[in-house]
Design a protein around this nucleic acid. Sequence first.
DNA 1: ATCTAGTTTAACCAATTGGTTAACAAATGT
DNA 2: ACATTTGTTAACCAATTGGTTAAACTAGAT
Lengths: 203, 203
Amino acid sequence: MTTEEQITPENNILKAAKEIFQKKGMAAARMQEIADEAGINKAMLHYYYRSKELLFEAVFKSAFHMLAPQLNEIMNADTSVFEKIRNFSSNYISFVLKHPYLPNFIIQELNRNPEFVKNLIAEKNFPNISKFRQQVNNKIEAGEIRPINPDQLFINIISLNIFPFIGAPLLKGFVNVNDETYKQLMEDRKTEVADFIINAIKI
Amino acid sequence: MTTEEQITPENNILKAAKEIFQKKGMAAARMQEIADEAGINKAMLHYYYRSKELLFEAVFKSAFHMLAPQLNEIMNADTSVFEKIRNFSSNYISFVLKHPYLPNFIIQELNRNPEFVKNLIAEKNFPNISKFRQQVNNKIEAGEIRPINPDQLFINIISLNIFPFIGAPLLKGFVNVNDETYKQLMEDRKTEVADFIINAIKI
DNA sequence: ATCTAGTTTAACCAATTGGTTAACAAATGT
DNA sequence: ACATTTGTTAACCAATTGGTTAAACTAGAT
């Protein structure tokens, strides 16, 4: 009983808008282009979503809701720190390989409009890492992992999983590989990233 | 004898254009806004740089040349792998703390136009990591560090150093800290990141 | 059949944008 | 002193953009 994607005009528009907004960003996206992508008249966009700004917000929230709850679920799950690191890395890389434009879109638009994050925090499923923090501190006290600021560890986990996608064009140049080889590197990271992190903190 | 920043009209425009382009991106930046920032007439922008596209390219290359040579120098220096990791982390974080918009600007525009990277690769100072690769492989054979694909290690180094700046708005929300506290986290990373990486690979 | 509500379209509009132009001012050379 | 190049400005322009409108089409209700 997954949420069936109905083929309402709203969803059709949203899908087209996602495509264009995520590829070009808010400023460079054109309403006409979105209408073409959706195969409808431009006026329909304004009929269903009042303005470009509102359509963009709908797209952004939809995109964010695809990513954030996953993070939340994993971080608050009833599993060990190491399992969380493994699950998150594996799940996120798999997910992003299927939606390559998503992370860059979110990061970019949050940089463009940092206040936007306040809206997101207010929502119910906004990721909360307090449980993770506690678990890390417990492990440190138990002498099972090296002393580390849990926030820094969290930042490291996110960085290692997300940046390789956002920085793909640059990194492809640096390591000098073609798209296919780079994709294989990303596949490998599903397990490599977690191993790397766990090695870094395990005593 | 550092390259003195002359106060020619070209440099004045370039500085203003950097400010605006890096804050808003190519598409959202307005020529009038750049002119205002530079305190000159809009027509002057076209007098010194023919078009928005060319002005943007000048800004982009100038920005890239601030970052890439540093990477190249450190990676090709006559120092050990561990020293390179420490130097790079410390230098880069210090540098980016002074130029917070830079990494996001470069990453964003390379995603918008991935072919751009081909131009950059052709330039003389484009980072080359072959020496680093060789050093890592030697260390692995010598049994001093764990087996790891040098390219993956390189990607990890870059990710851990750069993403916390690009993803700052999001990460500030996740770890729930204010700007000042977050900046302190970044200061700490000058040494924490290198420690983390070295712990991950050292046997 | 016809009324009504929602849906769709083509034509239109005002504002903005990158870019040009032609006249004017300031140096620079002779 | 004069001419020529270089720098600067305000006014202008064509194209594009997000958004509107009024008329037409559809489908269900009566």
